[in-house]
Design a binder for these strands. Structure first.
Lengths: 363, 363
DNA sequence: CCAGGTAATCAAAACGTTTTGACTTTGATA
DNA sequence: TATCAAAGTCAAAACGTTTTGATTACCTGG
């Protein structure tokens, strides 16, 4: 590897002159500048970012903690976030938490070691994770994505509203008995979607009608949707008659819906004729499958870029703060403004497709 | 941040002693060791990997260049590779090339700046990329994943065999006219799958029968499958009768197949009754959709781990080589063994599902 | 004609590690 | 009892940058 020293020697100047040519922080005469640039070009010099990071105390990199990249929702989010970060000069260190708190703690520690400037965090199951809170305490800016966590800044969509729109739609179609297949129990996304669903059902139905709502929780995976449907079938849920039998399945995300769709078909229940089905997230394949899936579309690119944007803001604020601290040798607590925890909430769109219809008895 | 100096001071020893406690490279008395460990624990010390990397000349990180994370195939590959790398103590820097050579060059330069120890490279379109070759020339170990590039080490599946198995299956079912919707023209994966398909068709069909094979190329995306089908329909391809009309669509990957499936349905062509359809890769959703998709399953986790394994081998070899070079001040070319370019080829599995059937005229 | 600013450059310190040479001390071996 | 090796420790150099005085030379305004 050629270093700044090699360049300096080749151009016949000092190391600091080369650095100043590159950074522009001090004036350099045109002939010298050209000689240095020529040497850089000729030697193929590339500054060593490790060394830069060491002195600047910033690695210009972000840690991205994501539970499951095989899920295209996370895939497209990760993609959009990486692109946004790269546009602003930051690299992304990828971490696959796989819903495992131990792994998360492990990654977090590694990321701190690597001096990441900030963290983009998709919660897995338990929120908030202990190790994450330690990282926050250690002073690393964090933005939580896709999930609302009270004391941490976050970017997520209006899950309640999404649920409500679904509820209204289904109630208006006449559904009075639903099966809700959630993600991990207690996760705010899941709870919000469910509460929204309830609200929407109440709004959309005739005032008197009570709604029968069966709840199941589990992972945000196709297998969970698949197995839940089969389990329900074994329990006779779909054999019931009248108000008991669910006429619509509301899945907490598209992957669950995909698995549920498969299982329903295996049970000879045709969607939407015998049973309606909805998803959440609006990933690409929902438009392609048969029947195409009614779902709530997240503006995933906007969520992703907003998250990066917010994180970068916090990073800058954090750095300024540190600088001021360092200048202020007098260590006055400087009347810390009460820290405002920003929550960016983005709107969702209901996308009505083939997978919903009025319940069978109404046709 | 607490540094090794702070620890040394707290434990009343020198900096090098702390380092030796951590690395175990020199013996340290038990009482000292405990005092140091206690100080580390108490201060929450975490070694700065930038500094470590600077002296060790190795960042313990890999660059991962992937064209499109929204595609679950790449998503699960990326996931598996990251996990394999993490297991061996390496971090992964994520780069979304988006099929754009400019972006690729950009990323490559950044990765070299960051002193990555190796590169995991999924080719996008043009192969091999100019910037990649420069990186290779700069001496960074590279492993190409999912694609065969002659002069670079790679890990990929037996695409020819996968195509052949599909060809045999379709020929045996009686298909004599096919539409092949490829990925980017000229990409080895695409060509190999196509050539395999041809070979399989020849083997599986009755000797005399000639096969009508229509070829289209484009991106590895659902939209490409969708649009190609509609374009073909506009050209009257599906209106033809007899041997002209394709009775099966062979997509070069699952995403294309997914798009094609949608378009076929919009054309009122039922799969597999009116037209068979196959994919390639075997991502999760192929088992879930209706009709479930006949496809060629890649052992993606094995591909991913093999790629990481191979890359790590090369990295080690590279480091040993450099060390020897440094020891050998005499700079004898040491009779360089002709470099063997390893290509790891993994087997595929044909998964026959609902999307194929004999052509309509045979029923 | 001088004070003071600016352009242009360099040397040296600092960032947080690891590695190496040197120095004691201790025990075992001849 | 003299010799040697190993254990245990430290100080200093090195890794490749950026930043910060310091220095010189020149120009400008009074």
């Amino acid at each position: 590897m050629t270093t700044i020293k090699d360049v300096a020697r080749a151009a016949g100047v000092s190391v600091s002159t080369v650095s100043h040519v590159l950074s522009g922080r001090r004036p350099i005469s045109e002939p010298t500048r050209l000689r240095v640039l020529e040497a850089i070009e000729r030697l193929g010099y590339r500054p060593n970012r490790l060394a830069q990071g060491l002195v600047s105390k910033s690695s210009r990199s972000l840690g991205l903690l994501v539970p499951d990249l095989a899920n295209p929702f996370f895939g497209s989010m990760a993609e959009a976030m990486e692109i946004a970060a790269h546009d602003r000069g930051y690299s992304v260190i990828l971490c696959n938490t796989n819903l495992d708190p131990k792994r998360e703690a492990d990654y977090l520690s590694m990321l701190l070691s690597r001096q990441v400037d900030g963290l983009l965090y998709f919660p897995g199951t338990r929120v908030p994770n202990r190790a994450l809170l330690e990282a926050v305490a250690a002073g690393v800016p964090v933005v939580v994505v896709d999930e609302r966590i009270d004391n941490l800044p976050g970017v997520f969509v209006d899950n309640f509203d999404g649920g409500r729109q679904l509820g209204r739609l289904l109630a208006q179609l006449g559904h009075r008995s639903l099966l809700f297949i959630g993600g991990p129990e207690g996760l705010p996304t899941v709870t919000d979607r469910l509460n929204g669903l309830r609200a929407g059902l109440a709004e959309g139905g005739s005032a008197s009608a009570t709604v029968n709502l069966l709840l199941r929780f589990g992972e945000y995976r196709a297998s969970h949707g698949y197995e839940t449907i089969h389990a329900c079938a074994r329990e006779g849920v779909f054999a019931a008659v009248g108000d008991e039998r669910p006429t619509a399945v509301v899945a907490a995300n598209d992957m669950i819906a995909l698995g549920a769709l498969r299982a329903l078909r295996e049970l000879q229940l045709q969607v939407p004729r015998d049973c309606s089905l909805t998803g959440f997230d609006g990933v690409e394949f929902t438009a392609m499958i048969t029947p195409s899936l009614t779902t709530v579309q997240q503006p995933s690119t906007r969520v992703a870029t907003a998250a990066v944007e917010l994180l970068l803001q916090r990073i800058e604020a954090h750095e300024h703060h540190r600088d001021r601290e360092r200048a202020n040798h007098e260590h006055q607590p400087s009347a810390e403004a009460t820290p405002v925890i920003p929550h960016v909430v983005l709107p969702v769109t209901l996308v009505v497709r083939e997978s919903v219809a009025p319940p069978p008895q109404l046709r």
